[in-house]
């Protein structure tokens, strides 16, 4: 049973491990690195939105906070990467905790607006604190990630780092979802009142999952900052939050693979469509529109429905 449950991830891990051996081109590796980074961010957001049913339009803020925290510490203050990383996680978690307590009392549209405001505040702060963050022109010269003397200074090495982090977080998230807390989250999604009646501390649970998903976003941001070696407030703007959200909706909300699929699709599609030049945006938009219209549960939802249909047909034929 355990093997069956982990089989997709094991297959995925093997595929991820051998893929770059055939792909030495930094361009393709670069795309795969970005897919990995976005997958990590969407995994956290999926936990919050897909499982706990809480919307966030401000996740780009945590992504940027993570990137700026380690970026500033390593580039300006010569702190080693690991202590900087721990500091980044603590800072983001603390900020998310404070925001979570205030915002998560709200529901639906109000929660969306509150988180949107949080994103905007962080965006303005990063722009205004010119002396500290570099302001609108950004923070340049972020060094490569170095752990115990090993430097992840090439796309090839970075690829393995990103996907190793992804797989670790995936296992962690899958375990959370299949635990008591995971069931509580899904209960919360269906009905807050019912969840409270079952003895779940709703507020505490919501804040916990919010903080956790913010830390995921921060980790993704850290990886982004050190892979590009440059970060600007642009990465914390509303459009990026919306992009993360679109990835989940397109890939499949409430399914951990959905976030990966959405991240891959939204990163790959514009690259593949760039051959169409002026028509690129039209085709891209149409594809997203078709997915949202005909697959309301996203691509993963669509695949599952298709799979179930085939199984049912095969069974029916077997009986008939």
């Amino acid at each position: 049973m355990a093997i069956k449950r982990h089989l997709p991830l094991m297959l995925f891990g093997c595929a991820a491990a051998v893929l770059p051996l055939g792909l030495k081109d930094p361009y393709y590796l670069g795309i795969l690195v970005f897919i990995g980074i976005f997958s990590i961010a969407t995994m956290g957001l999926n936990l919050l939105m897909g499982y706990a049913g809480q919307i966030s339009l401000g996740h780009a803020a945590f992504y940027a906070l993570g990137a700026y925290a380690t970026g500033l510490l390593t580039a300006k203050y010569n702190v080693h990467f690991l202590p900087a990383l721990i500091a980044a996680i603590i800072v983001t978690a603390a900020i998310a905790y404070v925001i979570g307590i205030a915002c998560l009392r709200l529901k639906g549209h109000y929660l969306a607006v509150a988180t949107l405001a949080v994103g905007e505040i962080v965006f303005i702060c990063l722009n205004a604190a010119v002396g500290f963050t570099g302001g609108p022109s950004g923070l340049a010269g972020i060094p490569s990630i170095e752990i115990g003397g090993f430097s992840f200074d090439s796309d090839f090495k970075f690829y393995y780092l990103v996907w190793a982090v992804f797989i670790l977080l995936f296992i962690l998230t899958a375990n959370i979802i299949n635990s008591r807390s995971g069931r509580a989250l899904r209960c919360l999604h269906s009905s807050e009142i019912a969840a409270a009646a079952m003895g779940i501390n709703v507020t505490k649970l919501k804040v916990q999952v919010f903080v956790l998903s913010a830390v995921y976003a921060a980790l993704a941001g850290v990886l982004y900052g050190h892979s590009v070696t440059f970060i600007s407030p642009q990465s914390s703007d509303l459009m990026f939050s919306v992009k993360l959200l679109t990835m989940i909706v397109v890939g499949g909300m409430g399914n951990l693979w959905g976030g990966v699929l959405g991240a891959a699709l939204l990163t790959l599609l514009p690259e593949m469509l760039s051959a169409f030049h002026d028509y690129e945006l039209i085709i891209y938009g149409s594809i997203l529109l078709v997915i949202v219209m005909f697959l309301p549960d996203g691509l993963m939802g669509g695949f599952e429905a298709l799979g179930n249909k085939i199984i049912r047909k095969v069974r029916a034929r077997g009986r008939g």
Binding site: D25, P26, Y27, G30, F34, V228, P270, E280
Partner: peptide, 21 residues
């Protein structure tokens, strides 16, 4: 000619493509 959409992450990919592919 590659379109960056004014986006930094996109620019990084496009520049990588121009250089390596």
């Amino acid at each position: 000619i590659e379109d960056t959409e004014g986006d930094e992450a996109k620019t990084v990919l496009k520049v990588k493509k121009l250089i390596s592919s």
